[in-house]
């Protein structure tokens, strides 16, 4: 079955892509680029890196601009999926939804209306096991945004390695954040994945941080041999 993966550039969508590739054919990545950065349905910190990720993975990218207005966003997503059906003959969609009933129900409804399969391979996955699998399977993930106590500025650009994951577990226990960032406490950017032919190297980036909120804005990046 040919599938399109809704991709935000973060760990969840690209790990879902990795899982989908083990069982079906991933034909393309699909991304909505919101013009409104406050869009609550699709997060934004490093969406502009998705084209580079698609190139690294050797996958075509279907991208559609969206104004980020609630109801408009869904028709934009419908348009993106239709375009993926026309251009890449996808029969189904994969998302990296972990527990968000809101997000996944809306995508399920669109897929149902378009007659597409919808898969959420990370749905209600065990958070600790997922974070472990992410690392051991060869993903390189950095924190690209923090939006919660107790993250300080040093987290921006920090690699999600064993030490960082252990610290996140402590934060989850003491500060009530989710280990996976499911609650929007942090966002991630994938620099390398087992299915990437090349890896992403960040040449220039800028940190913006104030009061437990901050983003790592990647200004220049390129692909390198692995």
């Amino acid at each position: 079955m040919k599938l399109g993966v809704l991709c935000s550039g973060g760990k969840d969508s690209l790990y879902a892509c990795f899982l989908a590739m083990q069982k079906e054919e991933v034909a393309c990545l699909i991304t909505l680029f919101p013009e409104n950065p406050e869009s609550y349905m699709f997060h934004t910190p490093n969406l502009h890196m998705v084209p580079l990720q698609a190139e690294a993975a050797g996958l075509p990218l279907v991208s559609v601009r969206t104004e980020g207005i609630e109801e408009k966003e869904l028709s934009d997503l419908t348009r993106a999926l239709e375009s993926a059906v026309n251009d890449h003959e996808i029969e189904g969609v994969v998302t990296g939804a972990l527990m968000s009933v809101y997000q996944s129900s809306r995508i399920q409804r669109i897929c149902h209306a378009l007659g597409l399969w919808c898969f959420n391979p990370l749905w209600y996955t065990d958070p600790a096991r997922y974070m472990e699998n992410l690392r051991v399977s060869g993903f390189r993930v950095v924190i690209s945004g923090v939006f919660s106590e107790p993250f300080d500025e040093s987290w921006l650009g920090r690699e999600l390695d064993g030490d960082a994951t252990m610290l996140l577990s402590e934060y989850a226990q003491h500060y009530g954040i989710t280990l996976t960032g499911e609650g929007g406490e942090y966002e991630t950017l994938v620099l390398d994945a087992p299915f990437f032919r090349k890896k992403i190297a960040i040449q220039e980036s800028e940190k913006k941080y104030c009061n437990f909120r901050g983003v790592l804005n990647v200004k220049r990046a390129s692909l390198e041999e692995k």
Partner: peptide, 15 residues
């Protein structure tokens, strides 16, 4: 057997 749907519909129950 072991289709992509397993992750979404079987594993959460098994957990």
């Amino acid at each position: 057997e072991e289709s992509l749907g397993r992750d979404e519909f079987v594993n959460p129950v098994a957990r």
